[in-house]
């Protein structure tokens, strides 16, 4: 099973690095957001609350955009038959989750580093901030594939993904924003991360259990 998941992850990386379109698009998005914020605010020091809000806006759109075409592309390229034949639905799901998590976490780390570089933000607990950001990126990335699979064969795919995913993301976002604010303003609490993990854990477990119903014809 682990090798099948690894094969799916490898396939995703190879396909992505063949044209790097998604990677470049998301990198460009990240840089553009940071630049626009820098141009608009024109000041070095910004309020920590504003910094947290920027981080979450970037994180939400990175998660959504990175997963938007994950499954739809399989149908368009007709690689779906190959995946059906070679690996189980379980391996496809976890392979996509691992890839998404890696992609979102990598890009979010760049975005946060850029934001910290451009703006002078006094952060009370740097460990807490990076830990909250890391956990949030991992969980957001892991929650996207089930929604991406749900919309893969629907009309108006692009518009539907944020509509479906946003309300389910909100509890996680609410906790994540609160946790990040605590880390930036005073002291971070591990309880927030546990609560986030518990909520996302339920969604991801359910998604893994139900994925076969979406994946199989």
């Amino acid at each position: 099973m682990v090798s099948a998941i690894g094969a799916v992850v490898l396939k995703e990386i190879v396909v992505e690095f063949r044209n790097r379109s998604l990677l470049y698009t998301l990198l460009l998005f990240t840089v553009v957001v940071v630049l626009i914020l820098a141009f608009a605010l024109m000041e070095k020091t910004i309020a920590p609350e504003l910094f947290v809000a920027f981080c979450w806006i970037v994180l939400f759109f990175l998660a959504i955009q990175s997963g938007a075409r994950s499954f739809a592309a399989e149908y368009e390229r007709e690689t779906v038959v190959l995946l059906h034949t070679l690996v189980s639905g379980y391996a496809v799901f976890w392979g996509k989750v691992v890839y998404q998590v890696g992609m979102v976490t990598f890009l979010m780390s760049i975005a946060a580093a850029l934001l910290l570089l451009v703006f002078d933000v006094p952060i009370a607990s740097m460990t807490g901030f990076w830990l909250t950001l890391g956990v949030s990126s991992v969980l957001m990335g892991a929650m996207v594939p089930i929604f991406s699979a749900l919309i893969a064969r629907s009309q108006m795919k692009g518009a539907l993904l944020p509509v479906l995913a946003f309300p389910v993301f909100v509890p996680l976002m609410r906790l994540g924003i609160e946790g990040m604010l605590d880390a930036v303003l005073k002291q971070w609490h591990v309880q927030t991360l546990i609560l986030m993990g518990a909520y996302a854990g339920i969604v991801i477990t359910l998604a893994a259990m139900l994925f076969d119903y979406v994946w199989r014809e």
């Binding site: 089930i146 309300p167 389910v168 909100v170 909520y199 969604v203 359910l206 998604a207």
Partner: peptide, 9 residues
């Protein structure tokens, strides 16, 4: 599937 995942919230 969506009704089940959505109900978690």
């Amino acid at each position: 599937v969506y009704a089940i995942v959505a109900f978690v919230t």
